[in-house]
C-alpha cells in the first residue's frame, strides 16, 4: 500500500487527474443521459454525445448581451477547476465548499447581469438552490472535521462510518438540487423559465458553462466518496449515488421553490445537524457518561 501513497504525494497524479476531469465529467454526463434514456425505455444518445454538443457549441456564434456575462461564465468554470484541483491535491474541504459557492454565485451574477426575465427568475431560483444546498454541505464538512480533526482531504482515511451516516443521508437528500434533477430542478425548469440562469448564454460561452456543470457534478460525487475508505466502496457509492439520483429523477415530478425550502431546511438540514452532533466529542462523552451511569446504576 505504500506505492500508491508515494504517487499521491507527488504532484503528477493530481495534475493528470485534473486534466482528465473534463473528459471524465463529460462521460459522466453521457452516462447520465444514456441511463435516463434507458429508464424511460428510449435508446438514448451515444456516451460521447456531451462532447459532440460541446464541439457543436464551439462552432456556433457566441452572442452575449454584455461583456460581464463572459467574465461570469469563465469565472464559473474557473472556480470549479480550482475546487477540483484543491480536491485532487488533497487540500482543504472548506476551501472546496467556498470555491463551489463562488462558482454558483458567478452563475447567479451572470444571470442577473442581463435583462432577460427568464434569466433573472432563474438567477433568483439558483440563489434559493444555493441557500438550500450549501448549509447542508457545510454541516457535512463540519461533521467530517469533528470526526477526523482535519479539513484536509488527504487527511481523511475512512473511519467516518458509522458516525457520519446522518451526514451522508443529508447530502444524498440535497443531491438532486446540485445535479439539477427532479424534484428540485427548479432553477433550470425548462417548462417554466426556459433554461434559467443559462438562458442568455450561447455558443462557446454556453460550452464553458456546460463543462463547469460536468465538473460540479463530478466534484459533488467525489465529496460523497470521502465518506468511505475502501476503494471498491468508493466506486460503489459514486455509481450508486448517480443511479439512485437518476431513479428519483424518473419517478418524480418537479416541485416548486416553496417545497424546496421546506424540504431542505426542515428535513435535510436537521439531519445534517444530527450528523454534527453524532460525530462530536461532546456527544460521545455524553453517550459514555450515559452508558457508565446505566452500567453503574444496573
Amino acid at each position: 500500500m505504500s506505492c500508491p501513497m508515494s504517487i499521491c504525494a507527488s504532484a503528477a497524479l493530481p495534475a493528470i487527474l485534473l486534466l482528465l476531469s473534463p473528459l471524465f465529467g463529460g462521460l459522466l454526463a453521457g452516462v447520465d443521459r444514456k441511463l435516463t434514456a434507458r429508464m424511460q425505455n428510449r435508446k438514448g444518445p451515444p456516451l460521447t454525445q456531451p462532447f459532440w454538443d460541446i464541439f457543436k457549441l464551439l462552432g456556433k456564434q457566441s452572442m452575449v448581451s454584455n461583456p460581464a456575462q463572459i467574465l461570469f461564465a469563465i469565472g464559473y468554470l474557473g472556480f470549479m477547476i480550482l475546487a477540483l484541483g484543491v480536491f485532487f491535491w488533497g487540500g482543504d474541504l472548506l476551501a472546496i465548499v467556498f470555491l463551489t459557492t463562488f462558482a454558483s454565485v458567478c452563475l447567479v451574477l451572470g444571470a442577473f447581469s442581463v435583462r432577460s426575465p427568464y434569466a433573472y427568475i432563474g438567477g433568483q431560483r439558483e440563489l434559493l438552490q444555493l441557500a438550500s444546498f450549501e448549509p447542508v454541505l457545510i454541516a457535512a464538512v463540519a461533521a467530517i472535521y469533528l470526526k477526523t480533526n482535519t479539513f484536509l482531504v488527504s487527511g481523511i482515511h475512512g473511519g467516518l462510518m458509522p458516525y457520519l451516516i446522518p451526514s451522508l443521508l443529508a447530502l444524498w437528500m440535497v443531491l438532486p438540487i446540485k445535479m439539477r434533477k427532479s424534484p428540485f430542478d427548479i432553477a433550470t425548469a425548462h417548462q417554466e423559465v426556459v433554461k434559467g440562469p443559462f438562458t442568455e448564454y450561447s455558443g462557446a460561452y454556453y460550452a464553458v458553462i456546460l463543462v463547469g456543470e460536468w465538473l460540479e457534478l463530478l466534484l459533488v460525487l467525489l465529496i460523497i466518496t470521502l465518506f468511505v475508505a475502501n476503494p471498491w466502496l468508493k466506486v460503489l457509492i459514486f455509481v450508486g449515488s448517480l443511479v439512485g439520483e437518476l431513479l428519483l429523477d424518473n419517478a418524480c415530478a418537479r416541485l416548486n421553490w416553496k417545497w424546496l425550502l421546506r424540504y431542505s431546511w426542515a428535513i435535510a438540514l436537521p439531519m445534517a445537524v444530527i450528523g454534527i452532533m453524532v460525530s462530536s466529542d461532546v456527544f460521545r462523552a455524553l453517550i459514555n457518561a450515559l452508558s457508565a451511569y446505566i452500567y453503574i446504576g444496573g
Binding site: T36, M39, Q40, N41, R42, S182, P183, D185, A189, Q191, N250, A251, C252, A253, R254
Partner: peptide
Amino acid sequence: YGDALGYENYFMQSWR
C-alpha cells in the same frame, strides 16, 4: 402534462 410537471418518464410512457 407530465412534461409540464418535469416528469419526463411519464411523458415518454404516455406517448408510447
